[in-house]
């Protein structure tokens, strides 16, 4: 049985500062990557989504107002931002074997089981698991679960209102059996496989996103994710990216905007390929994929290379 440690809601700024310092230290002394993820989970209490934060999110993504009457249920991606500091708290902790800086977000899938609303206090439980090979290093999953405020976070039978699995890749470690290991080599890789440029045939477009240079900064303000690779070209360059790139979850948020049911009970996933450099345009497609299901894709209007593919399944109809 995994241990569950209660922590204070981490402050992302502190996490990133420590991560940057660690990265510098690692370069000095060379960090030996350990092949084991911590068994423990962390849990933090969240006082509930702040109304003004939700409104700021809406202003950025568009869509209808969260007036508490006609639109109450928080978007899945907003819930993700509530759990994100806890994720980072775990990934940035001293005993976490992989450096936070340089991790690449490969995939996300969310099972949004119950509606969550503004000012509703919750507990957020995060654990890491499934360390496995990736052709450029190793990948693992961060499982984020949102529990009711009154639930027992140490119990496996506590009702999970929202469950998200974020798959990250780290180049800092190579697992011994990584030679020739395809992305599809592990149990969850069927979902985690990024769309490859060669097989991608753009479907008929239904929208065009014009992303200004400030989209990374604006989403950072809304989500609290001030990872420097999203903020500006100079800060991105410092971390080896030629230009700032958009947050993966920004794409997920736009993909889902206006399509999630108020009563929740839906599942969705997104797999990231080439990052979206800022500023740029993304061609988007939403198309029906069987009862209650929609498939999404986003790609570059210039090169035709995919940025992401995604899928949304409503209710209990249609499994993915």
């Amino acid at each position: 049985m995994r241990t569950t440690a209660a922590i204070e809601m981490p402050r992302l700024g502190a996490v990133y500062r420590r991560a940057a310092a660690d990265a510098a230290l690692d370069r000095l002394r060379g960090r030996g990557a350990t092949a084991a993820l911590p068994e423990r989970r962390v849990v933090a209490r969240h006082p509930g989504a702040d109304r003004s934060d939700v409104e700021a999110y809406r202003r950025l993504l568009g869509g209808e107002a969260f007036d508490g009457t006609h639109r109450r249920s928080l978007p899945s991606v907003f819930v993700h931002t509530m759990g994100f500091p806890v994720q980072m708290g775990l990934l940035g902790s001293e005993d976490f074997p992989l450096p936070l800086m340089g991790m690449v977000h490969l995939h996300n899938e969310v099972d949004h089981r119950r509606p969550l609303t503004v000012d509703e206090p919750v507990q957020i439980r995060v654990g890491a698991e499934g360390l496995r090979p990736h052709r450029r290093g190793a990948q693992f999953d961060v499982v984020t679960e949102v529990l009711d405020d009154s639930a027992d976070p140490t119990s496996e039978s506590a009702e999970v209102l929202w469950r998200g699995v974020s798959t990250y890749m780290s180049r800092a470690v190579r697992l011994t059996d990584s030679e020739g290991a395809a992305d599809g080599g592990s149990e969850s890789a069927g979902r985690g496989s990024a769309p490859s440029a060669s097989d991608f045939a753009p479907p008929s477009k239904t929208a065009l996103w014009r992303l200004g240079a400030d989209v990374g900064r604006r989403y950072a303000k809304v989500s609290g994710d001030y990872n420097p690779i999203h903020l500006s070209a100079p800060t991105a360059k410092a971390l080896g990216m030629p230009r700032a790139i958009v947050h993966g979850m920004y794409s997920a948020a736009r993909m889902l905007e206006g399509r999630e049911p108020e009563e929740a009970g839906h599942r969705w996933s997104i797999s990231f390929a080439a990052p979206v450099k800022l500023p740029s345009a993304v061609v988007f497609s939403a198309r029906p994929a069987g009862p209650g299901a929609t498939e999404f894709a986003g790609w570059s209007p210039k090169s035709g290379r995919p940025h992401f593919t995604g899928r949304l399944s409503l209710g209990t109809v249609g499994t993915d």
Partner: peptide, 26 residues
Amino acid sequence: PGHLAPQAPGVAEPRTGLSMGDHMAI
């Protein structure tokens, strides 16, 4: 300075970001 760039009214559909011509082309 970034604030000062004027925003001309778009001819794009607000919900798709596609121009009317691109919609019609489809």
